[in-house]
Computed example of a mutant assay.
Amino acid sequence: MTEQDRKGAAFIREIARTEAPYGTLAIWYLGQESVIIKGDGITIYVDPYLSGDLDTGDWRRVFPAPIAPEEIQGVNLCLITHEHDDHMDARTLPWLHRSSPEAMIVAPACCKSALLEMGIPASGLITADDRQPLELFSKLRLTPIAAAHEQLERDADGCPRYVGYVLELNGVTLYHAGDTLVYPELIARVSALKPDIALLPINGRDYFRQQRGIVGNMDYREAAHFAREIGADTVIPLHYDLFAVNAEKPGHFVEYMYEQFPEQKGHVMARGERFVYVSPRAFLQP
């Protein structure tokens, strides 16, 4: 067993052994926008990109994933925000399904054909429709939120091409934005759900990246203002460090937020870190 194998096995054991008390959620950072969320016995993978499938030229990973796809275990739910390869990974999702065949995958409707080609059965797929919140496991409320990456796009049935998700679980409301710009309806929709914690992209966009076909997101300044506008208790930046060609310095986000909103709580996650968010309701009985 290699050192990386040992680290991967220890990482999976840590997830399995973590029990988040009421009013808390445990979050693990895998890179890009890939995170694992656990609360009330439910383990959720969001955009698991673990394979290094893009590992060529400009798209070489800056750091390896904490686990390999074949090490995945114990998944109850997988959320996909959109079809880009670093979010819907064709070399990770078949392993996830193989190890956790009962885990449902929630994804935009446009992802369905690709997921079927990966061997995911139609019975294991749920469409992410921002007009229809989902009640899952009798203790998770999941609300898809339309995202603008860089445009708001919908199919003929009105289903969004890009989404984020609001999870209400274990006494905590978490918003994972996926890839998106800020638009007025996004602020109104998310703030109405009163998120405790927001996971937001900060890599931004510019003319030169657009010319290379790199689709952008909110930048670190916009992310800081957006977190303030939606009333998030704590904000975690994402999507800034996995590919040098599409990176941002998280220190810029921290500095800007401190200068503009010094009372806003935030946390920059280390690679592979477990962060336990504690809400104001953590010490109250459910």
Rank of each mutant, 00 (worst) to 15 (best):
72 I>Q: 08
145 I>Q: 09
69 P>L: 15
91 R>N: 12
52 G>K: 03
148 A>Y: 04
140 L>M: 15
46 V>H: 13
22 Y>I: 06
89 D>C: 01
76 N>C: 14
83 E>F: 01
32 Q>E: 10
162 Y>G: 00
129 D>M: 05
69 P>K: 02
75 V>E: 15
94 P>L: 13
142 L>T: 04
26 A>Q: 08
84 H>E: 15
103 A>C: 02
118 M>V: 10
107 A>W: 01
49 Y>F: 03
45 Y>Q: 08
130 D>R: 00
130 D>K: 03
69 P>W: 15
109 A>D: 13
76 N>S: 15
114 A>C: 08
48 P>A: 14
63 F>V: 06
156 A>K: 03
47 D>H: 05
105 I>P: 02
157 D>Q: 15
91 R>M: 15
91 R>L: 14
136 L>T: 07
105 I>E: 01
150 E>N: 07
155 D>T: 09
77 L>E: 12
100 S>R: 04
150 E>C: 14
79 L>K: 09
140 L>D: 10
135 E>A: 00
119 G>V: 05
128 A>T: 04
78 C>D: 01
96 L>P: 09
77 L>T: 04
52 G>H: 12
111 C>A: 12
111 C>W: 12
97 H>R: 06
149 H>A: 03
143 T>W: 13
128 A>L: 07
158 G>T: 12
104 M>Y: 11
126 I>C: 06
61 R>N: 11
84 H>P: 06
100 S>T: 07
31 G>S: 02
114 A>F: 03
123 S>C: 03
19 E>I: 09
54 L>I: 02
67 I>H: 13
110 C>R: 12
50 L>D: 05
69 P>F: 15
92 T>V: 10
119 G>F: 03
150 E>I: 07
65 A>H: 08
32 Q>V: 04
137 F>I: 04
162 Y>F: 14
92 T>W: 12
84 H>T: 09
55 D>S: 13
131 R>T: 11
143 T>Q: 15
75 V>A: 02
21 P>H: 14
110 C>T: 06
141 R>G: 11
69 P>S: 15
95 W>K: 07
20 A>E: 11
114 A>K: 14
20 A>I: 10
91 R>A: 15
161 R>C: 14
59 W>F: 15
138 S>D: 13
140 L>I: 09
